[in-house]
Design a protein around this nucleic acid. Structure first.
Lengths: 211, 211
DNA sequence: CCAGACATGTAACAGGTTACATGATTCG
DNA sequence: CGAATCATGTAACCTGTTACATGTCTGG
C-alpha cells in the first residue's frame, strides 16, 4: 500500500528467532540469561546457540514488534523481554508450516574421516578413537539423564513444558548417539582390520612390496 | 620475526577451507563446479555447502598461499585451482588433530516439535508426519544406494577415493536416518495415543471438563 | 532452433562467531 | 577475603546466505 517500505518488516525470521519466540511464549518474560539456561538444558545439546546470539536476537525481534523490552530499574538494570501478540501469531504460523529442510548434520570428525584415507592408518585410528570417546561420553550422559527421569515421581522444580523438552532431547540424543557410536566403532574395527591385514601382507611378502 | 604482519596469515581456516583443501588434495586440480559436484555426491547429503561458497573459498585460500589459481585461455575461461605444498601441510596438520567439537544436529523439525506442545494435537501430528515422510524418503535413498553398491564388481567411472566417500556417506546416512525414523515414528504414535486418550476422556466426561 | 537444464560467476547483506570486558556471587 | 565461577553485555569482523545474472550445452 504505502510507497515507503516499513524499515524492517521484510526481514526473515531465522531459526534463532523462533527459538527465542518459542521460549518467551512458554516461559514468559525472560532475560537473555534465562534463555541461555533453557537452551543449554535442552536443544543446546545438539544445536549450539552461543550466548551472544541470545543477547542480540531479542532486540531484533523488538524492532519487528514481536517482542517488547523492559529494563529493570535497580542496580542490575537487566533487560527483560516479553512476547507480543504479533509474536505469538508469527510463532503459531510457523508451527503450522511443517519444515521441509533436511537435517543438517555437521560433524568435523566425519569431515576428517572423509579425507583420512590419504593419511597413515594411525591417523585414522586416532580420529575414530577420539570420536568414539566423545560419542560414548555423550551417550552415557543421555543414559544417565534417562535413568534420572525414570526414577522420580512428580514434577520437580522445572516447568512441565521444560520437562517435555527434556524428554524430546533425551530420546533424540540417545538415538543419535547410539547411531554415532555404532558408526565409529565400525570405522575403528574396519581400520583395525585393514591395518592387521596390511601387516600380514607386509609380513608375508617380506618387503617385496609396500601394501 | 618481521614487524609488519603478513596480511592474512592469521585468518582461521574453517571447515569449508578443509573441505576444499581435501578435495583438491585427492581429486587434483578442480574448478569450483567440480567441487560442487563432489560435495553433492557425498557430504552434501547432510552438510550443505551452497555453491557460492565453493566459488568463494578457493580465492581465499589462494591469498593464504594454500592454493593456486589458473585461468583457462579459451572461451570458457574457467578457474582451475590446485593445492600447494603449504596447503597439503595445513591439511595434514588438521587431520593430525582429531576434532573435539560435538556434532551439530540442526533440525528445524525438532525445533518445531519443541514448541508444538503449545499447539493443538493436529499441528503436532502434522509436524511428525512431515518429518516421517522426509526421513523415510532419505532412508529409502540410502538403502537404494546401498543395494547399488553391493551389486556391482569393479570400480566404475568414479575414483577409488570417491567410492570411499560414498561408503562413509551411506553408512552414516543410513544409521542416522534409521534413528530419525524411529524417533519420529515414536513421536507420531505418542501424539496419536495421547490424542486417542484425550478423545476417550472427552467422551467419558461428556463435556464436563476439557482435557 | 527453442526451451530447459546445466554451468559459472558476482555482489550485498546480515546473522553468527569471536573476543573483550566487567559486575556479582559463592565457596573455601 | 581472594579466587573461581556465574552472569551480563558490547562490538568488530567475517563467513555464509540470498539474490541476481548470464553463458553454454542438450534434446526434442
Amino acid at each position: 500500500m504505502s510507497i515507503e517500505r516499513p524499515t524492517n518488516t521484510n526481514a526473515q525470521l531465522t531459526p534463532t528467532s523462533y527459538l527465542v519466540l518459542g521460549l518467551l511464549a512458554r516461559e514468559g518474560p525472560s532475560t537473555p540469561y534465562d534463555l541461555k539456561r533453557h537452551v543449554a538444558a535442552t536443544i543446546g545439546h545438539f544445536w549450539s546457540f552461543p550466548h551472544a546470539l541470545l543477547y542480540k536476537e531479542p532486540p531484533r525481534l523488538v524492532e519487528l514488534g514481536l517482542v517488547t523490552e523492559e529494563r529493570e530499574q535497580d542496580g542490575r538494570r537487566r533487560r527483560l523481554f516479553s512476547i507480543t501478540d504479533a509474536g505469538r501469531q508469527a510463532l503459531r504460523a510457523w508451527l503450522g508450516r511443517p519444515a521441509r529442510q533436511p537435517t543438517e548434520l555437521r560433524d568435523l570428525g566425519l569431515l576428517q574421516l572423509f579425507f583420512a584415507d590419504l593419511e597413515p592408518t594411525t591417523a585414522r585410528l586416532a580420529i575414530a578413537g577420539e570420536q568414539l570417546t566423545l560419542h560414548r561420553a555423550q551417550l552415557a550422559g543421555y543414559e544417565a539423564g534417562q535413568r534420572f527421569e525414570d526414577g522420580r515421581d512428580g514434577p520437580g522444580a522445572v516447568s512441565r513444558s521444560i520437562e517435555h523438552w527434556r524428554g524430546v532431547t533425551l530420546r533424540m540424543g540417545l538415538l543419535y548417539e547410539r547411531a554415532a557410536v555404532e558408526f565409529w566403532a565400525g570405522v575403528a574395527t574396519h581400520v583395525g582390520i585393514a591395518d592387521a591385514a596390511a601387516a600380514r601382507v607386509r609380513a608375508e611378502d617380506d618387503g617385496t612390496r609396500i601394501a
